[in-house]
Design a protein around this nucleic acid. Structure first.
Lengths: 225, 225, 225, 225
DNA sequence: GATGAATGAGTCTTCATTCAT
DNA sequence: TATGAATGAAGACTCATTCAT
């Protein structure tokens, strides 16, 4: 026979590969995208498996149920990001204003522009069905960020760099635009011709302007409301 | 007609309690609560019917499908609220600062503290599955509010009451805390012992402080960022 | 138009009928046959539904799960049969030997030749997976029968019609051939060219012979074993 | 051969613990227990493998399928027991009554008190799904026993030790208590507080009493039924 | 109009079996 | 030979939708 067909033993692609270590991460990645896009109930495990390139049964080797997978997706997306953030940000002795700038810019880079933004939307949307995830999110993502921001502000006030303010209210006010913009980019925006289109750079710039303006010690103390 | 049949409207007890006219609203109310709480997929029509006090089949006399009902819930919750808001707010010739205060306070009263807040959460959560609803929401709820706020600011600037600013960015920044707080109260907050607890009054006060502070014409013109 | 086609409104057979009251019984009958034939795990609900002439979903209107259906099958097959047996048998003041004959003949007519025989086989086979059913069977079927038989024997002994014996052991010995034959006819026999073929009449005759022989008061007291 | 490879058999620890020869038996033992307890369908091969201390894949090195394993369990449990029984019992020239006693006592020792009792329950329970096993059981276990018993009785009758009787019916009647008791101890009894508790010794004693009583040649010839 | 029994397509989950290692 | 990760067909169960009453 004149054909030069390769030996059948090595030419055939294996029907599947054994990738015990890599699988959990791949599954979580696939699941994350779909859960963020469609929510818990509307995500079919078939789709997750297909996207991860495995069969449906394989999912169950790593996660005991759809709910389990869902919780793992949320938990494992949050923890490493938050830890890195806490570790890296605000460790310096730079002026508090600089730290604040850094905080918001980093926040966007690390959360707003990453899957965590999708997770925020997801947790908000599913909180009615998975309250324990909402609690987890609050404890492990929201509060750490808020505390970090609060500590920067407190330091600035103590050192006279900032004027004294209502820190708790301010933190909510200042984090909100970041969080909502992140959520928006994973929900409304992909569906719509954007009404206003403010690029993130300009958005951040304006935000920092206002925040630092409000903290400026020189400014007249209080205003009649 | 010679028959002696009694007048159908009043002569005997009706076989069913209620009239055709009141039904749609009652169904929408029941559906709204459940959709907001659980999302589209996890809401069962049985539950909606039960809450509305009708049978499952009756739903189909008024809405052709679950999706239809869902869209009706979203649309009919938004439209009247927005219309009333546009009509009532900013019709006065009061100082722009006063108008602005009024805008935010009314916003909270009319949206933040009403079912619409739940709708916002719902639309954000379901945008992946119902992009046309997201578009509708953007067009009918988000943009009108944004335009209203923009018009107030523009007027203030033109009349010299406010200093000139980046209006588009500012609007996003200033609406965000309101919207996110509204969403939060329908998602994370009901599940959690609140980490920080800032009452809505204090929250609004601080917010207005910052917004008006940023618009104050007296203040130093710009800041290097 | 010259066709005489019947009016379409009345000619079409309805897609299904509403038979709320009759359904549970029909479902149980269908399930009984299949469970007895194949056991719990190997019986598919599709098959039960098909045999009952309904769709799979209809099963769940009446029984919450496969297990529920299974338990209902067992429970509701046993109770009426046993009650009728207890009520009808051994109410007479006939000679105890006559009563005894009647007991065994009725037992076969009412149990051995009815679905209950299949249930016995089924419960025995599934006892490992459904111990509470085994307990139920013991309490509601086995013990009542045993007590009835015991009471007949006790009466006969007290009245001098029977010689005294070990009642408990005897009851087991005397019920066993009946029960095992009943089980056999629902298990091994349908599969096999029967090795020995003893018709039920001859079987009962021999059985009664031995039982009454053993109870005969005239016979020599005891035998060296 | 000049290689310095160590002798494979003893020089290093084998990568796997056991040898090919012992495996099949160990697998069968593990499978027997589980099949008897749970039946065919409800027994998972995982569980069998775990109990045998091997991996699931290993099962397939010895048995081509679950069904294969099942049949092997039944077949290989029966054959040796029956063969030994046939070989040992009824080889003597003792009085027929003694032989009969021996038969029943041995039957209990060799079957009633061994795994074969579980097999009987299993085959009865699975006969609907595995009729060929039922046939096998009938041929290889039931009939041999019955023939053995029959031959003893026939001999006794021929030698005038027993009175003439309906042998076929009697055999069924006399084997039944043994078989049913054996089945019972592997099904209902483990689940229940026993209603009556007759120890096996007393049970056998009573049984032999009746059987030998019925065979007593002295007794009045027949009885009207 | 109103009901709710009946339907059946759709999804999660299990598990016997295969096969790369 | 032994392993156990991967497969995929099969089955229980759900629930939006229909329709006889």
């Amino acid at each position: 026979m004149p054909t030069t067909a390769p030996a059948p033993s090595s030419a055939r692609a294996p029907r599947w590969e054994r990738r015990k270590d890599a699988r959990p991460g791949e599954l979580l990645d696939a699941a994350l995208e779909l859960f963020v896009d469609k929510g818990f109930a509307a995500t079919r495990l078939d789709a997750v498996a297909a996207r991860a390139g495995v069969s449906k049964g394989t999912l169950y080797l790593y996660y005991a149920s759809k709910e389990d997978l869902f919780k793992a997706v949320v938990r494992q997306s949050i923890v490493p990001l938050i830890e890195a953030f806490q570790h890296d940000v605000a460790q310096s002795s730079a002026p508090s204003a600089t730290l604040l700038r850094e905080f918001f810019r980093q926040w966007w880079t690390r959360f707003g522009a990453t899957p965590l933004a999708g997770i925020a939307k997801l947790v908000v949307g599913e909180s009615g069905n998975f309250p324990e995830l909402a609690r987890f999110f609050q404890q492990e993502a929201v509060l750490p960020c808020a505390m970090l921001l609060a500590s920067i502000v407190h330091r600035g006030v103590k050192q006279g760099e900032f004027r004294p303010i209502d820190v708790e209210a301010s933190i909510q006010l200042w984090i909100s635009p970041m969080v909502l913009r992140a959520i928006w980019e994973h929900s409304i925006l992909p569906c719509c011709p954007p009404g206003f289109d403010v690029p993130i750079e300009r958005f951040l710039e304006a935000h920092l302007d206002y925040v630092l303006g409000a903290l400026e010690p020189a400014r007249g103390q209080g205003r009649t409301s």
